[in-house]
Design a protein around this nucleic acid. Structure first.
Lengths: 227, 227
DNA sequence: TAGTTTGTAACCGAATTGTTTCCAAGTTAT
DNA sequence: ATAACTTGGAAACAATTCGGTTACAAACTA
């Protein structure tokens, strides 16, 4: 799921609406943290670094827009979508000038909220567009990060490039010449036979220490293939 | 006027609405270029590099959303606000999934459109706020001042620009080529290997003398990233 | 000119990558 | 079926690459 590991904060004082929001966002794959007031939110922001906030405009105590204006002043650049009960012109203006990115009126259409969240995440650069998936592996080429079943797996540069060429060409045996060209490139001159073997084995050990997943299998006399 | 020199493209086939849009946007200080169809827009984008587009969803010939999807595919990342005659759920979804950033229904409230344009410009980095926060660091770009936990930290010009590029691109490994382009710019000619290393280490030492905060970590074989 | 900032160079240590050797498993020939 | 042969895997070792550190020189500022 592409929304996995994206954290969203919701601030809403009406408990049933908060629950509804949490339900829809969770269902879309986001991890959601709800607050009934702005009280402990700043502390949370310092520690967690969530990707986006959905904020009710009318909160008890500190106004939603006031709070966001304060955060902006402090230097927080987190994307904010305001929710409000009515569509008053004054409200709208205050929402945007206080530093909000978008504005929706209640009762909100969940579908639209999700679309707007998605657009805002895209624009603010949270969505890492260049991800490649294979079975339970996710390669984030921008972040140089591999996760297996959601857990990060440490790979070296070479190993990452190697795995990437396999994920790009699944199910087909890649011979050693191809791998050498693709991964090692020009450094082809003077190249020991077993270099690729050793590199492959190190990679296989890292992505499948127990050897039970069988992501990559040798093809005798040819090379390797991603099953 | 803060909107001076910001270029906005409007694509709208109904001439009177186009004029109305041009009027409101010009009054707000933007320089506006209107088109009655998508026809010559791409050529214009190639030459001018406007900051934002306002696009009617229902255009003769190529659909507005289709056109934007095409542009996105071509690699154009320009912010887009869609206008549509009716608020159909299908329309809305198509607007966002084709790569739009915001969506308004006609008849639109000019005030709201201006607010949304402003918010989107802010978010897409056209307007840069002069305070940026990351964890307990606050960078004041106006004053070239950094505070950590409220305490001022002395940075040189270079170090400040360096840290700023990291705060602008958090969580991403920034490779040395990128940093060189971004921070050092044209002086790329004759550039010692270790220059970036040394600069990075000087910066790291200043923002985290004890090395316990781990703001910036090296990514082996790639560069550095702000955690 | 004095003082600060920034780039260069040399060196060190750690992480990564390549080489070698030996062994196991698959393939082929007898 | 078994021996000879070929290829892949494992482990230890060596070489290389890369980042960190320091000292020093050049460039820049006040």
């Amino acid at each position: 799921m592409q929304n996995q590991d994206i954290e969203i904060v919701v601030i809403e004082d009406e408990e049933d609406i908060l629950e509804l929001l949490e339900y829809h966002l969770s269902k879309a794959g986001y991890s959601v943290t709800g607050f009934l007031s702005t009280e402990h939110v700043e502390r949370f922001l310092e520690e967690e670094n969530p990707a986006l906030m959905v904020v009710d405009r009318n909160l008890p105590g500190v106004e939603g827009s006031e709070f966001v204006a304060y955060l902006r002043d402090e230097g927080y650049d987190i994307p904010v979508i305001f929710l409000t009960a009515m569509d008053q012109g004054k409200d709208l203006e205050e929402g945007f000038t206080s530093g909000g990115d978008d504005y929706m009126t209640k009762p909100f259409n969940p579908k639209e909220l999700l679309l707007r969240i998605d657009a805002l995440l895209r624009r603010s650069g949270v969505r890492k567009s260049d991800r490649v998936k294979y079975r339970d592996m996710v390669l984030d080429t921008k972040q140089h990060l591999l996760t297996i079943e959601g857990n990060p797996v440490e790979l070296t540069n070479l190993e990452f490039r190697l795995l990437y060429t396999f994920v790009k060409n699944p199910h087909q045996p890649l011979d050693r010449d191809f791998l050498r060209d693709e991964v090692w490139g020009d450094d082809s001159a003077s190249f020991h036979d077993k270099t690729i073997n050793v590199a492959m084995n190190r990679l296989k050990k890292k992505i499948d220490p127990s050897g039970e997943k069988e992501y990559i299998v040798p093809v005798w006399g040819v090379g390797y293939k991603l099953v």
